[in-house]
């Protein structure tokens, strides 16, 4: 009680809680009315699923509903960890996530740095406009184009055969999946991803460059010593976020791209959840697998943020 009074610095706040609630509600009635549909939406479609996540520890049957299905503890998790698919989906999820961090993530930074060095405004604008386009093309179309170009009689194989090579059924070969997935991700996102870095670059104080020139630094040195450090905070923030979604791959794209002959390298946790849950209706098991994935992501996000806070000034919160 005493603590509460000390904390409440202003006289206005020291009114009893109930009075404040009523006053606030009276004053902001219309605002709460406006927020009502929004709160309802989040309650149903975001907190509802969180409530429904309990089926991961139950044997959900549609007849009994979420609440009345009986508890089975960690049974589904155990089944997953000891099952045949655990190793495969975990390996593929981690590897594709790593490829994304190593190749896709830096590609945008590199493009931004390169665009920044272009002297002609017209050329810069044109390159930007062109590289943004794929961001707006739907995944279905992107994968559809890949399927067509990479097919045994597609454009790529026609070119290979023209130079005397042998045709390769790319999308049917497990060893090609990761390469194709990652390369097409760069194609889709490199331009769009560079926007934020270009903005960060334009915020760098121009006098720094002037000073560097006086000191005799060439363009290469300026890029390494001024531009790159200048955008580092942005890079770190985006990197943390990226790690947090390290295992939220573009499941939808994989679902379109893979087929049973490439499952070996393409099947990830997200697609496994889809097959188990939606196609086979093993709701509880699939929910448990999905929950495992979300928990790892949470841990990674918190971990990345912690490390960044420890070793640099940049943090998400």
């Amino acid at each position: 009680m005493e603590l509460g009074r000390k904390d409440a610095a202003s006289a206005r706040i020291s009114q009893p809680f109930g009075v404040r609630v009523r006053k606030d509600f009276k004053r902001n009635r219309l605002i709460y009315l406006m927020l009502l549909p929004v709160v309802a939406f989040y309650a149903i479609f975001h907190y509802g699923p969180l409530y429904g996540l309990q089926i991961a520890f139950k044997n959900f049957s549609p007849g009994k509903g979420i609440w009345h299905s009986e508890w089975v503890g960690f049974q589904h998790f155990q089944d997953f960890f000891t099952g045949f698919f655990f190793e495969r989906v975990l390996r593929n999820t981690v590897l594709l996530g790593l490829y994304d961090l190593i190749f896709v993530f830096p590609a945008s930074i590199l493009l931004a740095l390169m665009l920044n060095e272009v002297r002609s405004r017209f050329f810069k604008r044109t390159v930007q406009s062109i590289t943004y386009i794929p961001h707006f093309i739907s995944v279905v179309v992107v994968v559809g184009m890949m399927v067509d170009f990479m097919s045994t009689d597609g454009l790529i194989n026609q070119i290979i055969q023209f130079f005397g090579g042998k045709g390769v059924p790319f999308l049917r070969l497990p060893e090609w999946f990761r390469t194709l997935f990652t390369t097409s991700a760069i194609w889709q996102g490199v331009g769009w991803g560079s926007i934020i870095y270009l903005a960060a670059i334009s915020n760098i104080d121009p006098s720094l460059y002037e000073a560097a020139k006086v000191d005799g630094a060439g363009r290469w040195k300026q890029m390494l010593r001024i531009t790159l450090p200048g955008i580092m905070p942005t890079v770190i923030i985006l990197f943390i976020l990226r790690i947090g979604s390290f295992m939220v791959l573009q499941d939808e794209k994989i679902l379109l791209m893979y087929n049973p002959s490439t499952y070996e390298t393409a099947d990830v946790i997200g697609t496994y959840v889809y097959r188990k849950g939606i196609l086979e209706a093993s709701y509880s098991y699939a929910a448990a697998v999905g929950m495992f994935n979300s928990l790892i992501n949470m841990a990674l996000l918190l971990g990345a943020n912690y490390i960044s806070k420890r070793y640099s000034d940049t943090k998400l919160w």
């Binding site: 149903i44 699923p49 969180l50 429904g52 089926i55 959840v273 994935n293």
Partner: peptide, 15 residues
């Protein structure tokens, strides 16, 4: 918070 905590595909489907 919902950006970080997510019930996932299956619970949402059931809802």
């Amino acid at each position: 918070l919902t950006m970080f905590f997510d019930g996932g595909l299956i619970p949402k489907y059931l809802i």
